[in-house]
Design a binder for these strands. Structure first.
Lengths: 147, 147
DNA sequence: GTATCTAGTGTATAAATTGCACCATAGTGT
DNA sequence: ACACTATGGTGCAATTTATACACTAGATAC
């Protein structure tokens, strides 16, 4: 996808700002490193923080709902090409249990079910956004308009 | 882990700034939505961008090297409590292949191997940092110092 | 000779994921 | 009446991925 010089620059700047915030956060936490809360604790906490994202499809489901807004079951299945309905069903249940996603049933028939990010899920999506943008640029999927 | 009011506020502010950058990036990309680069393309691109992270342990390895700095094989195994040496070996190979991690062999004996983030890996780590911090606060693993 | 340190590999087992058929419910078409 | 559509899933066998744990190699120390 080609974007204007101006927009490319805006995105680049935003990504660089986020890198800087990341650096700052790291530097603050480093100051608390002691015998109780050392590297081991930090790594543990990070692994724990990611435990919900670190199995296949969860992070993709989050990104999909963040990008596409609320969607129904079969719409998601279509967007996430390659996921089986079984896995999608299981993962959505997990996402709902962990408070990232809300499941809204609309009476039918046919009964329709809408999945939507909770505030927590939307926050996570926004925090993930800069990384996605960075990877898109890194993989040349987003390029500066030639000329 | 308890942090001072001041540091807690700094981290909170950084996280909120990142959310705002995420919102801005989203809003820029939304402007390019058309028949060629619609929701489908965006979701595809996001799934693709995450493909390296979306199997177990890859994101944890990245976070570990980001937090702990360069480490040797058995040090990482100790930090990532629960990973098998087989899986760690396979995942490190994948991370190296995808350019996130650098494998540096120091002549022995015994031969020592150091794993270190590449610039690309460090960028990804920094971009991931705010999300990790947000999750740590959300899970009350990082709290404001009482009083 | 035996033990120790390093960074892994081999392999059987367990867990996660997929593919595909299938279910219930109600509406529409012929 | 009968088939076909659409909805959101389940059930289950097969495949892929991860784990546990024994084991390797090369060199030094005891």
């Amino acid at each position: 996808m080609e974007v204007t010089h101006e927009d490319f620059k805006k995105v680049e700047t935003a990504i660089n700002d986020v890198k800087e915030e990341g650096r700052q956060i790291r530097s603050i936490f480093e100051g608390y490193s002691d015998e109780n809360f050392g590297i081991d604790w930090e790594v543990d906490a990070a692994v724990d923080a990611f435990s919900i994202f670190s199995s296949r499809w969860t992070i993709e489901i989050l990104a999909t709902l963040y990008i596409a807004g609320e969607r129904r079951f079969n719409e998601m299945r279509k967007l996430l090409r390659g996921i089986s309905s079984r896995t999608l069903s299981d993962k959505l249940t997990k996402c709902a249990e962990s408070g990232l996603v809300e499941r809204i049933v609309e009476d039918g028939p046919p009964v329709r079910v809408i999945y939507r990010l909770t505030d927590h899920g939307r926050d996570a999506g926004r925090l993930l956004g800069p990384l996605v943008a960075y990877m898109k640029i890194h993989q040349d999927r987003v390029v500066r308009h030639s000329q």
